[in-house]
Amino acid sequence: MTDAVLQTSGISKSFGALRASRDISIDLKPGEIHAIIGPNGAGKSTLIGQICGTLKPDSGSVHLLGKDVTHQPTRARARAGLGRTFQISSLSMEDTVLQNVLLGALGASGRPWRFFSNVLKDTSLRETAEEALARVGLLDQARMRTAELSHGQRRQLEVAVALTQKPKALVMDEPMAGMGSEGSKLLTGFLDQLRHEAPILLVEHDMDAVFSLADRISVLVYGEVIATGTVDEIRANAAVKEAYLGDEA
């Protein structure tokens, strides 16, 4: 068995009486897409927050590339190779598409303390940024203001920004949300390839995408992982059917 790139060991988190995460242990292995599914309010966002460092678990630990990062802030985890895309686009809307990817490249370079040089003329940053844009098919939109992008294009840009960081593991929070079927098909194909570069922890509501992409699926209900397994195992799981999939599967 290969070592997990990303691993949570028994993490729990409560908000008052609400137990949003209960003893969650999941891992992400090299080359795989591990999907997290669950009904609204199951604690998916809380889980992501703890993995990415915006929330601290009450107990348990998070390991990234074999290192304990439980007490490290988001930015340290990012520098260690954890890429993330957001459910609600978190882009600088006033800036151009290029500026948004440049920020990712700048973060990865770790050298923001330059006050006089022109960031647009920094060839190494620019190459990283444009390569990432080209990969998601947004190079032609590089000079557009981000606010002018369509919803689907913003999702693509989110992915591009994460790519500039050359991540070793990716956490994607509903990358397909609000996308048309065409766009979501394109993105599905892209993520399919991407898993070999960086394994993906994928939180997604689009079941077609999840079933076609995931190597493993974990089902989260009321803050608890009730099942983890391959697509077929999850489809066949009685408890999952009852809790979540209903008649759909």
Binding site: C52, T54, P73, T74, R75, A76, A78, R79, R84, F86, S90, L91, S92, M93, E94, D95, Q99, N100, L103, G104, L106, G107, A108, G110, V161, Q165
Partner: peptide, 13 residues
């Protein structure tokens, strides 16, 4: 970017 979306800057490291 830190003015507009601090969380993004943080995620960029």
């Amino acid at each position: 970017a830190a003015r507009q979306v601090p969380v993004r800057v943080e995620t960029a490291g």
